[in-house]
Design a protein around this nucleic acid. Sequence first.
DNA 1: CTGAAAGCGCTTACAG
DNA 2: CTGAAAGCGCTTACAG
Lengths: 356, 356
Amino acid sequence: MSSPPKKPTMRDVSRLAGVSTMTVSRVLADPGIVSQETRRRVLTAVEQLGYVPDLVAGSLSSRRTNFVGLILPTLTNSNFGNSAQGLAEVLGPSYQLLIGYTLYRIAEEERLVRALLSRRPEALVIAGSIHTVATRRMLTNAAIPIVEIWERPEPPIDRSVGFSNFEAGRAAARHLIDLGHRRIAAVGSLVDADAADHRGEARLQGFAAALRDAGLPDDLVLRRGHAPVSYGHGAEAMAFLLEAAGDVEAVFAVSDVSAFGAIMECRRRGIDVPGGIAVLGFGDFEIGRQCEPAISTVRVDAKAIGEETGRLLLELFDRTDGTPPPILRDVGISVVGRGTTALRPARPSSPWPPSR
Amino acid sequence: MSSPPKKPTMRDVSRLAGVSTMTVSRVLADPGIVSQETRRRVLTAVEQLGYVPDLVAGSLSSRRTNFVGLILPTLTNSNFGNSAQGLAEVLGPSYQLLIGYTLYRIAEEERLVRALLSRRPEALVIAGSIHTVATRRMLTNAAIPIVEIWERPEPPIDRSVGFSNFEAGRAAARHLIDLGHRRIAAVGSLVDADAADHRGEARLQGFAAALRDAGLPDDLVLRRGHAPVSYGHGAEAMAFLLEAAGDVEAVFAVSDVSAFGAIMECRRRGIDVPGGIAVLGFGDFEIGRQCEPAISTVRVDAKAIGEETGRLLLELFDRTDGTPPPILRDVGISVVGRGTTALRPARPSSPWPPSR
DNA sequence: CTGAAAGCGCTTACAG
DNA sequence: CTGAAAGCGCTTACAG
């Protein structure tokens, strides 16, 4: 590489422009407070040297890193990705997201919290509210805003933006019960040392509770495999379910991703959805909207969670110690009935195999 | 919050342990070189104060940030997410990914490169090889490893891990031609100031070139809408195509996501896939594998791109100035014929609407 | 095995 | 509008 042996510093710029480093710093931070001529000279020097300010040094000096830490279960779930994008968009270009993922492992979360806190973020956003003792202690002592998202912990460590997964599960069950189903199943993942999707588990528990409230058995509320769930997870779970309970009428999957896999498994077995089995998902992923028939789901606005969190953080950062923003923000959920739980197809099904 | 007014510093720890800050630093960096008794005292103090080292200060001092910058088009595409996870896994816990996303906007990429470089990453990984002049200049002068991924630029700015999108497009076309199709279409996105998926465009160009090589017209190689493509994009593009060219026999979509949307649109219109129209995707997303019929695709190992990039970086970081690692790593592609391009369904289709 | 000094590249606070 | 001094919290390099 023909690059210079060393990155130019602010000192180099100041020398070239014939000013102090202070003035360079000012031009970069707030150009308006410097005379036009000086500003021009400084910017020319910056341009000429290809100077890129060192924010590591700047952060140490100003005690502001403009980092926001974000801990998610996976990087490949588009719903969490939507939350991340929403957060990034609201925070704007002056903040840099420090993203880590846990794969639903609580020990990994602890490691990540420690690693991120050592970067001195201005706030830490974390999916979930079940943490190790050490994690909880670190978060409590961090002296920065902590936002637990995708849940409604009571009380949260500091702040929370999300919704009740338990209530989401209840709503799911009621939707299927109201449709007249009686032999109702649910599929989620195992909660153990390898991985634990506590939010999915809360949905299953809310679901089971609603079944019992309606006088129905909850023996078909199943945990299969480990989080993160996949299309394949749903297919496998549905295959198991069909063997175990041939009389099942409706299935709730803890994710649209699982739901889609379950529907495909039904198709492979020649079982009509919703005619033979109704399927309800969770999350309102794009896949569910575009699938034919479209997947009924419990809608949660993933992007709004990120945006709302961003707004909350900006309020907290800007706060001139007026009234502090609220502790809990519930973005709510709603059940969206679509094709896969229709009592009969909304429109006549296409013939299959269809001909042109 | 009942947290202490100020975060404890290494100085606080050293005082409590009755040693110098140097010794605290040593215990944290390399416990073995400190006597057992001293180590114990230091660790006790660390524990007691809940001390979390300040890596901002540490980075400035040691001139090692252990950051790796990563610039991706979107955070919600699971293939790029897989690359990010692969990279993170190989780099291990001592490196922190600094992720930014461009939404396929070249100006946003420039802003991000500047922002990330100011954090002094040890390396920068960037999807793509089409950059603004200013971006290219910054990358060239950065004096750190730069890895352009998901492409095969010749020459790359520094290093590259990926594959040829042009060749992927050619391979896609040949697959469809070999199957006996003659009226062949392709759908991608527009390349303009709003967004530009240059990799998808390269695939379309390779595809068109292969059609022409076979003496076939390339008038159905279409650009519709803007990247990032979605399930809806594929559905819309297929709807347009069916209106524009009722005689189309096969379609290549620049992404499995688009391909899935296209297949659903066919289903809504009662057109059998592959009986009526063959559909070939790109990327080998899980959705394609689980879909029924499974989506034929051009497979690219997204996670391997991330892992390979991680290994390359570790080699570059560790390098004791021996032989430098290679410039280009091509992970290759392969065409995976599955249900949606089968000349006839691999197994008899289920009756539709199926009955239980 | 342990420590005193210097310094990483900026910004803050204070002057003028 | 501009600058000299001090310092952010660590690690490096040098001693002992």
